[in-house]
Design a protein around this nucleic acid. Structure first.
Length: 638
DNA sequence: CAGAAACGGGG
DNA sequence: GTGTACGTTTCTG
């Protein structure tokens, strides 16, 4: 029996003897940085069935399906869980294999005695992370036995350990970890429009890293042999050799995270095609496996097992709000300087002409990877913190919308309080049209001119605070007497006349003894008990408060910085939580809750503007959760 | 005008 | 893979 502390980088499952086996990919802590794959064959797939009325009849029907050979499963048991805080008896069905879930779920759902299937669309590896309370990119304690080989693991890495777990892994701590990161970028000779992998060769592969490797691999460049400025060039004979050198460089540097810019869509697909042409193995997976393309909707993600690939373009689109997200634009935003630029359609000329032009092309190639790495070092810490809070794989988190991040955070929270998570709503275009659109925050267009004596007013985290203080949550929403028509009428009135708003008296507090009642729509939310979403947001805000306090107490600049990133991540998550109500296809989607939040938000800012006016501050611009006001003493009320 | 298709990033 | 982006702009019939 051996024990290992590892940093958990990635997770997946494979099928072994017709059973699903979880594989945890990590690096051993302490001593040399060894790769490790931990195997857990003890975790089984399951789902919940909500019976229509008679639970025993339902069990009988499901067993009947099994006897007819329609479905297969290993166990049925009655379990008590909560559904939107209402205790209910569910049937927990345990199955042989994760893929049996989509295979049989429709047949079960079609039974008359079955009301609903629940938690039937949670990927197996995510279920494993949630049920074992594991934190990706954090330290994990493993116990088990080392084995020589397992399934398809075929790696030339001498230091790789395979550990068969004898008990579930435990999270050891969630402290800040250092990761070995490398950025890369391809340059292609494409004289005829966009690069075509059937004809256009790769001419340069740029590499930068936080472990001392920085170079451009190319078949040209010997003319700069004596130029010290150009000593980052590594010359090879052929394109094939270039790709082989790239693969070897990543292996030798023992990289945890490989970073590209739009590499899901360009660099890795291109590299795959060119590597295939020259029969080069891109076997960068920790288990010796090659490059995989995972379908994500209509797009693909490039992935290696156990080597984390981040496409920084996707990260940047979430990280900041810009008009465009070219590498140049993002770099300018961060560092205030222009990158070296070579127009894409002229790269082949620079390559063919040689001399100073070729020199510039090399510099451009290096500049691209240096910029990519610099931006990654600025932005990935926040994404690492989000990963630890959301507790889903880093690879997934960097490709999730903020709404999905919030949703998976809530799926985990639900498990902790014994809630069975809601299914995803299946909204059709008709539902959406019938429903109309929600109005957003209140905006007062700025008064044109140069203003003096301005004061700024902001609500701190307006929407998260409102969700908590008004207990806005689907599980405490009073649903009697809500119809879409009624909502529609209320919703058309009263708040859209931007200029006349200050003459209007903001609606009085409508709250009743047992309910908070929202303006405009008059939806009622029970004051007790606390709703699931408000309680989850409160947890996030409390955690942020604790982190900020720890920050105040420490003098250590490194710890301070990492705590600061942590509290930023928590703030982002709290602010995103509003989205779970407003975005279609989300498990906790509730148009009523989304409307209530923005309605209360508009009421609050208008009230604040009105009160400011009484003190002589005239609002000249307002947006959602804050406004600017000008001091006009004559407006002041006595 | 509504519904379909393209677009983003990359060279 | 316990799966099938996304929101917006431009084109087309």
């Amino acid at each position: 029996m051996v024990k290992r502390n590892i940093v958990l980088l990635d997770i997946d499952y494979i099928t072994h003897d017709e059973k699903a086996v979880i594989r945890l990919f990590g690096k051993v802590k302490g001593g040399e940085s060894n790769d490790i794959i931990a195997i857990d064959d003890s975790f089984v797939p399951y789902l919940y069935i909500l019976p229509l009325e008679d639970i025993d009849k339902c069990i009988k029907d499901i067993n009947g399906l099994k006897e007819e050979g329609e479905i297969e499963f290993t166990k049925l048991e009655k379990v008590n869980k909560k559904d939107l805080q209402v205790p209910k008896e569910f049937i927990k069905m345990t199955l042989n294999h994760p893929q049996d879930v989509p295979k049989y779920r429709d047949k079960i759902w079609d039974l008359n005695s079955v009301k609903q299937l629940r938690e039937h669309d949670i990927p197996f590896y995510r279920r494993y992370l949630i049920d074992n309370a594991l934190v990706p990119m954090a330290e994990l304690e493993l116990e088990g036995e080392l084995i020589d080989s397992f399934e398809t693991v075929d790696s030339d890495d001498e230091s790789l350990e395979i550990l068969k777990l004898s008990c579930p892994p435990k999270t050891a701590n969630t402290d800040f970890q250092e990761f070995r990161m490398m950025s890369f970028d391809l340059e292609v000779r494409n004289p005829h429009g966009m690069p075509n992998p059937d004809q256009d060769e790769i001419i340069m592969i740029g590499i930068d890293s936080n472990v001392g490797v920085r170079k451009v691999i190319s078949t040209k460049g010997d003319e700069f042999d004596d130029d010290e400025e150009m000593d980052f060039i590594e010359i090879v004979e052929t394109e094939k050799e270039m790709i082989e050198r790239f693969v070897q460089t990543v292996k030798d540097a023992n990289i945890d995270i490989i970073i590209g810019y739009n590499s899901d869509n360009f660099d890795f697909p291109y590299l795959r095609d060119r590597a295939k042409r020259w029969e080069v193995d891109l076997d960068l997976g920790v288990d010796g496996s090659g490059l995989k393309f995972l379908r994500r909707g209509y797009a693909n993600s490039a992935a290696f097992r156990g080597l984390l690939h981040v496409d920084l373009y996707l990260v940047m689109r979430r990280y900041m709000s810009l008009d465009r997200y070219t590498l140049e634009r993002v770099y300018l935003e961060f560092f205030g300087e222009e990158k070296i630029d070579v127009p894409g359609e002229r790269i082949y000329e620079f390559w063919d002409n040689g001399g100073d032009e070729l020199k510039n092309l090399f510099k451009y190639s290096l500049d691209d990877v240096v910029a990519t790495l610099k931006i990654a070092m600025e932005t990935l810490p926040l994404n690492l913190e989000l990963t630890r809070i959301v507790r889903q794989p880093f690879f997934d988190v960097t490709r999730m919308s903020t709404g999905q991040q919030a949703e998976w955070f809530l799926v985990r929270k639900a498990y902790e309080v014994d809630e069975v998570v809601p299914n995803k709503p299946n909204m059709t275009m008709n539902n959406i049209r019938e429903r109309g659109s929600n109005s957003g925050g209140y905006v007062k267009e700025p008064e044109i001119g140069l203003h003096e004596n301005l004061v700024q007013f902001d609500f701190k985290s307006l929407y998260p605070t409102l969700i908590i203080s008004k207990n806005i949550s689907p599980d405490v929403l009073v649903t009697d007497n809500i119809s879409y028509n009624a909502k529609f009428e209320d919703f058309e009135t009263g708040y859209d006349e931007i200029d006349s708003v200050l003459e209007e008296t903001p609606s009085e507090d409508l709250d009743e003894e047992d309910y908070y009642v929202c303006p405009e729509h008059f939806f009622k939310f029970k004051k007790e008990p606390q709703g699931f979403i408000p309680s989850a947001i409160e947890d996030v805000l409390n955690e942020r408060f604790r982190v900020k306090n720890r920050m105040k107490q420490t003098e250590d600049p490194v710890l301070r910085k990492s705590l600061d990133v942590q509290q930023q991540a928590l703030k982002r998550l709290a602010n995103t939580m509003y989205g779970v109500y407003g975005f279609l296809r989300f498990r906790w989607y509730s148009f009523e809750c989304a409307q209530a939040i923005t309605a209360w938000g508009r009421q609050h800012i208008k009230k604040a503007m009105k009160e400011a006016e009484d003190f002589g501050f005239k609002a000249i611009y307002a947006d959602t959760d804050g406004f600017y006001a000008k001091y006009v003493p004559e407006m002041k009320k006595e």
